[in-house]
Amino acid sequence: MTELESQLQNEQQGALESLAQVASLEALDVWKQTYLGKSSLVMTTYGKMGTFTKEERPLIGRAVNAVKVALEAALSEKEVLVKQDALLKTMANEKLDVTLPGFPVRRGRLHPLNLTMREIYRVFGDMGFQVYNSPEVETDDMNFTFLNIPPYHPARDMWDTFYTETDGVVLRTHTSPGQIRAMREYYPNPVRVILPGTCMRYEQQDQSHEIEFMQFELLVVDKGVTFANLKGTMDDFTKRVFGADALTRFRPSHFPFTEPSAELDMSCIFCGGQGCGVCHGTGWIELGGCGMVHPRVLENGGYDPEVYSGFAAGVGIDRTTLLRYHIDDIRYLRGNDIRFLEQF
């Protein structure tokens, strides 16, 4: 081994030891200049290759190449490490206060009544009910007379009606006039519809009364439809909208357009039926009215009450919404206060 060869070997060893100490890109540059730069032993050895004898040249050439390859490999390996190290150091200064608020985005929302309405559409849609809309300004005949509520009948007291200046035209007080319209359109086919919409009653507005409110009505007409089906349908509805623990109770009532008639009560979802302020200590919350379609109403819709039967049910969408979201003032719904709407 020539002196040069051993010099090169020493150079390699020294370089690798020095490289181990390098900790920054700057130091790495200096190292590169020192061991692989123009004036480094490796590069100067290449430079004076012509001064070696023919026999020495391949030997020295191999030796210097080996050192160069080794140093370059070590350099690139080190470079990766140093760069990574540098990145980590930079990142250490990039720490965000992640508790700072995000930048505001304006989010769109559905109105709570429309949210509830969709839920109701979905539940009844699953049961095969189709939506049927009818006018909000209605004839007295549709709103009352055809529903077995003749003029001056005591049952008219159940609805405080807004009359228009056109004789025989009222603001619908319930969605029930849609029953007649739907039956007349579907006859002689079976009917299974949900009639949603805004109704209007002459009431003093307060925490629990609105002049304008939304309700939906169900109407099923077919051969062999029974009160038992009414119970099953409304029980399914109650459980799907208010939770599987909700119990239902059907209490005798009176509506001129159903016979027999019932009031649908749900076990209080606030106290589990134990009695609280919301249910006035009774454990029950009134959800809506229902019953078997009155024979005269079936007739007015075109169906023979000897052959067909049907049930109808009406539930307040406002009321359902108040219960679902624990809202204690019905006026919030149409007040559209952004502070209220933003909570949905």
Partner: peptide, 17 residues
């Protein structure tokens, strides 16, 4: 009314208007 059973509708579906 509590003696009346609770059953689901079973009839034919109406035309899908």
């Amino acid at each position: 009314y509590s003696h009346i059973p609770t059953t689901r509708l079973s009839g034919e579906l109406p035309p899908q208007l």
